[in-house]
Write a protein that binds this DNA or RNA. Structure first.
Lengths: 349, 349
DNA sequence: TTGTATGCGTTATCAA
DNA sequence: TTGATAACGCATACAA
C-alpha cells in the first residue's frame, strides 16, 4: 500500500511503456497495439489506478467538462417550480452531446463562498432568470471570457438568448377570453420585482421582471384596463391567496382571471371553488406554462404550453455550439395555446 | 488585445513583483503590503486578469471545491419530489462551510457521457437514494478514493450514512391509527423496485427499495395483514390512482389508508373525496415526509415529518468533515409524528 | 514582507 | 505504433 495514489507515470513505468503511451491507452485518442494496451491496463489494475486525474487533465486540456447553471434564488426555491425542473431536464440533455455535467451555482450577490461564479471551473454558463441581478452575474462570467447563454433574461449585446414569445402568447390567450365574451377580467401576475411584494399593482408601477412585464403587456393589449394583482411567487398557495382577494368581494367578482402561471391558476381555481364558484361556469381561468399541476385533476387548464424542456435543451445546445466554436445560435421559442376545461363564456346574468 | 488570456505571471511581471507575490495577493494567504497589493490589482485590471485559473489552482491544491451529488434517476424526476429539493437545499447549506458547489451527476449505469462518476473532478460525493444500482456507483467512487456519504441507502461497510428511522416512525403512525380504532387498513407504498410496477403486492413479494421496505415493515408491525398497494412513483396523481383502486369497490372500503408519502396521501384524499367520502370522517389518511403539499389545504395531513433539509445538511456536513479529516460522522435522523386533520376514529356503522 | 524554485498529473506535438 | 519533450497555470516550502 503506497501512501500516495498512483499516477499515470507509475502505471507507465510498471507497464514498461512511456507515460504518453499510457495516456493514450486511457484516452483512446491514438491507436495502440493490443499488447501494450493490455499491459497498461493490467499495470493500472495492479496499482489501483482508476484513470487520469480530472484536475490535471482539465488543466492540460483547458476544459473541465462542466457547465455552470446560475440561479439568482435559493436553489430549493428554484427547483420547486416545475418549469425549472423540466428546463434542467432539457439542459442536461442539451449539454450531453458535450458530455458535460451541470454545476449548480447561486449568485445572490452576497455569499462570498467559493467556488462562485468567479472561481468555478466551468467551460460555459447558463444564466436562468431575468432579475436585474443577473446583469452582474453576466458581467462576471463574460469578464472571465466564458461563453454564456441566457434563458429568459435581458442579456443585451451579443449574448445568445433563449426566449419565449411571452407577450404574443399571452395576448392570444387573452383574446380567447375576450372572444368568449368576457369583459370583466383580473390579471394575476408573477412577482414584479425582487422584493416579491404581493398585492394590487397600479397602472404606472414599474415591472422589473422581464417575464412578468412581457406577459402583462400581452394581456393588456386585449384588456388595457384590467386590474392587476401581483403574487409573491409562483405557487398554488400564492394563487389561492390571490384568488381569495379577487373573489372575496362578491359585488366585484370578475368573470375571468388570467393568471401568469399554471400554479397560480390552480390556486385561483381552488379559491374560486372555496367561494362557491364553479369553474368554468361561473368564472373562467387561464394559466401559463403548460406544466402538469399535480393535483389539479379533473380540470384541464386552458393555458399556454411553454416548451420548458426544449428551452433547457436549446440552452444546452447553444452552449455546446459555442464550445465547439460553432455559431452560438440563440433561439426564440413559441408557446402553444391549449384550450382546456377552465374557460367558457361568462355566466348569462 | 493579446490572443491568449493573461496568467498570474503576466500580472506579476506587469506589476513588477514575483509570481508568488501576485499569487498571494489573490489568495490572501499571506499578508502583503498595501502598496504591492494595489500594484498587483492594478496590473491585473490592466491585463483583464480576473483571478487564478480554477483548473490550475485545483490541480495544485488537490481540491476542486466541488461535491458531486449522484442520482439514479432522470434529474427532472428527482427534482419533482419536494423531499429531494429540500434535501438539496440542506446539502447546499451543509457543504457551504467548505465553500463547495454541487455537481449534478446521474449514474444510470448506461450513459457513458463524461464527466461521469469516473471522471468528474469532485472532492467528495453524496449518493442519493437506495436502488441496488447505487452499489455500483458506490464502488466506482470508492475506487477513486473519494470520500462518499450515502443518504438513505444501504451502503454497507464503513460508509457514513444519513439515515431515517423509517420503520419506527411508520410504526408509530400506524399505532396511532390503530389506537383510533381502525382495523381495516390499506397501505399505499412507494415503488417497490426499479421497475416501478404499480399494483397490489403479495405478502411474499420482495421489496427491493430500502425506504419502501423499512416503512412497510413498520406499518406491518401494527397491521400484519393489511393489503399493500404499490404506487409507481411518489406523486399526487399516483396517489389518486391508488385511491381510486382502493375506494372503487364500495363493499371493500378500508376505514384508513397509510400512505408512504405525503404526495401519495394527498392523492388518496383526492380520490376519497371523488368517491364521496369525507376525510377524516369516513376515512382516515396518513402520509410520510411532512412536506408542504401545494394545494392540499385546508387539510393538514397526519404524517411523519421527516427532517428533509436536515438530512441534506447532515450529508453536507459529513462530507465537509471527511474532507477536513475529521470523523466522518454518519447520522440517524428521526421523524416527528404530527397529528393533523386527516385522521379520526372510524365511522360508527 | 517578498522572491526562488519546484512540481501538481496530465496530454499535445512532433519525431522516431 | 511508440517515446521524448514541453507546457498547462498555479501555490507552496523555504530562503532572503
Amino acid at each position: 500500500m503506497s501512501t500516495r495514489r498512483a499516477t499515470i507515470s507509475d502505471v507507465a513505468r510498471e507497464a514498461g511503456v512511456s507515460p504518453s503511451t499510457a495516456s493514450v491507452v486511457f484516452s483512446g485518442k491514438t491507436p495502440t497495439s493490443e499488447a501494450t494496451r493490455a499491459r497498461v491496463l493490467a499495470a493500472a489494475d495492479a496499482l489501483g489506478y482508476t484513470g487520469p486525474d480530472p484536475r490535471a487533465a482539465s488543466l492540460r486540456r483547458g476544459r473541465s467538462g462542466i457547465v455552470g447553471v446560475v440561479f439568482d434564488t435559493h436553489l430549493g426555491t428554484a427547483f420547486l417550480d416545475p418549469v425549472t425542473t423540466h428546463m434542467m431536464d432539457g439542459l442536461a440533455d442539451g449539454v450531453s452531446r458535450l458530455g458535460a455535467a451541470l454545476l449548480l451555482l447561486r449568485d445572490d450577490g452576497e455569499t462570498v463562498s467559493e467556488p462562485s461564479l468567479h472561481t468555478a471551473p466551468i467551460d460555459a454558463a447558463v444564466l436562468i432568470g431575468c432579475s436585474p441581478r443577473m446583469r452582474d452575474s453576466l458581467e462576471i462570467v463574460r469578464g472571465r471570457g466564458i461563453p454564456v447563454v441566457v434563458v429568459e433574461g435581458d442579456a443585451g449585446e451579443g449574448v445568445p438568448q433563449v426566449l419565449l414569445d411571452n407577450a404574443e402568447a399571452q395576448r392570444a390567450a387573452a383574446q380567447h377570453v375576450a372572444d368568449l365574451g368576457h369583459r370583466d377580467v383580473v390579471i394575476v401576475t408573477l412577482p414584479i420585482d425582487t422584493s416579491r411584494r404581493r398585492g394590487w399593482v397600479t397602472a404606472d408601477e414599474p415591472v422589473r421582471v422581464d417575464v412578468t412585464a412581457d406577459r402583462l403587456a400581452g394581456a393588456r393589449e386585449v384588456f388595457p384596463r384590467a386590474p392587476v394583482l401581483a403574487a409573491a411567487t409562483s405557487s398554488i398557495d400564492e394563487g389561492a391567496i390571490a384568488g381569495r382577494t379577487i373573489f372575496g368581494d362578491p359585488s366585484r367578482r370578475p368573470t375571468a382571471v388570467i393568471a401568469q402561471s399554471d400554479l397560480l391558476a390552480a390556486g385561483v381555481i381552488r379559491a374560486a371553488e372555496e367561494a362557491g364558484l364553479r369553474v368554468p361556469h361561473d368564472v373562467s381561468v387561464t394559466g401559463f406554462d403548460g406544466v402538469v399541476v399535480d393535483g389539479l385533476a379533473p380540470h384541464v387548464l386552458t393555458t399556454l404550453v411553454q416548451p420548458a424542456t426544449a428551452k433547457g435543451r436549446a440552452a444546452g445546445e447553444a452552449v455546446a455550439a459555442m464550445l465547439e466554436d460553432d455559431e452560438p445560435s440563440g433561439l426564440d421559442l413559441t408557446c402553444t395555446f391549449r384550450v382546456g376545461t377552465t374557460t367558457a363564456p361568462p355566466p348569462t346574468t
